[in-house]
């Protein structure tokens, strides 16, 4: 797949988002800011699921840790939020290294469950340690004056998120990204070519955790509060659903999924208390009828229209051969 085809929609999106405050009102800019942060959260998750084939159910831990890093530094030590946002990926990354050390030893459902367990453990600590984190009262954060206007913080978020997504783009195009894709396709095959599978998976886990930490660190100043719900397991389900809706295999899939999620949540919360229920139903329909997600389906349609010699996915035979490798006498 050509990099131009993957970069072009990103640049169009960046230009659109940059122009947005000139086109819509302040409340919509706030919503767009929510979208940018959510998109980065989902994109960091898809480094694990889409690139490396690791289904983590505990990604919210790093999102929440990012949010609390900013909030704790601000309220306990008086550190302004910008240094806090720089510290967040370090804190989330170190925690991802510690958790990752254990979870990458497992595969599939066991990996998912253990990542969920660790995340819930961190959630329990944050939500019950009232003297330190404020428990479920949350912890207040106050942006400095220059970031208080909605548009100012929006552009700040846009810059940070763009840099992070640019980084993910480079990772995807790099040899490291190709190695993760190779491991996703067949870990044993990658191993006999000399790749230390666990180390690559751990590196992906740490990078994904650190970037989720960045997303979280942008979240608490936006809401001027860090809440334990940012670490709760339902928060971990959000990026899974967004990624499935947008398309696991497509680079911008999670961005499109996040847009759908934020818009739908906004519309639905004005009518019911169960936005995740509505989004879940939408994802169910998408997964059933568009298994490649919105972006994957559009890309496939685009390819067929241009009548390229190569269809969007390789033949099934190659996959079948890949599956039986482990168990052959």
């Amino acid at each position: 797949m050509g990099w131009r085809r993957e970069a072009a929609p990103l640049l169009v999106l960046l230009a659109t988002m940059a122009a947005l405050p000139f086109l819509v009102g302040e409340s919509d800019v706030y919503l767009a800011n929510d979208f940018l942060i959510t998109a980065l959260f989902a994109m960091s998750f898809n480094l694990l699921l889409g690139q490396a084939g690791m289904l983590s159910f505990g990604h919210a831990a790093f999102y929440g840790l990012g949010a609390y890093t900013v909030a704790l530094l601000y309220s306990k030590l008086g550190v302004p939020i910008v240094p806090g946002i720089l510290a967040a990926p370090l804190v989330a990354g170190v925690m991802a290294l510690a958790i990752g050390f254990f979870v990458v030893r497992l595969e599939g459902m066991y990996f998912a469950m253990l990542s969920l367990s660790f995340a819930q453990l961190i959630f329990s600590v944050v939500s019950s340690w009232y003297s330190f984190t404020g428990g479920d009262n949350g912890l207040p954060v106050s942006p400095p004056d220059w970031l208080l206007p909605t548009n100012a913080y929006y552009y700040f978020t846009l810059a940070v998120v763009s840099v992070c997504i640019g980084l993910l783009f480079l990772v995807r195009r790099s040899t490291f990204g190709a190695a993760l894709a190779a491991i996703r396709e067949n870990p044993q095959r990658a191993a006999y070519l000399g790749l230390n599978v666990r180390v690559y998976q751990l590196a992906a886990f740490v990078l994904a955790g650190a970037l989720a930490g960045v997303a979280g660190s942008l979240r608490s100043p936006l809401q001027q509060m860090a809440f334990p719900s940012l670490l709760y397991w339902t928060q971990s389900a959000d990026p899974v659903l967004m990624t499935l809706a947008g398309g696991v295999g497509a680079f911008i899939g999670p961005i499109v999924g996040a847009a759908l999620f934020v818009l739908l949540t906004f519309v639905v919360t004005s009518h019911t208390d169960y936005p995740l229920f509505a989004f879940g139903a939408v994802v169910l329909v998408l997964v059933l009828f568009l298994p490649k997600g919105i972006v994957g389906t559009v890309e496939g349609w685009w390819d067929r229209r241009r009548a390229k010699p190569a269809p969007a996915t390789p033949p099934q035979a190659a996959h079948a051969a890949a599956q039986q490798e482990g168990s052959r006498p």
Binding site: T175, A178, A179, E185, R189, Y192, A318, H319
Partner: peptide, 21 residues
């Protein structure tokens, strides 16, 4: 090691198959 049945990384380009190794 060159396994039987030509086990390439089907979803990677030819070049990436080589670079990974």
């Amino acid at each position: 090691y060159v396994p039987e049945d030509r086990r390439v990384f089907a979803e990677l380009s030819v070049e990436d198959n080589l670079l990974v190794a």
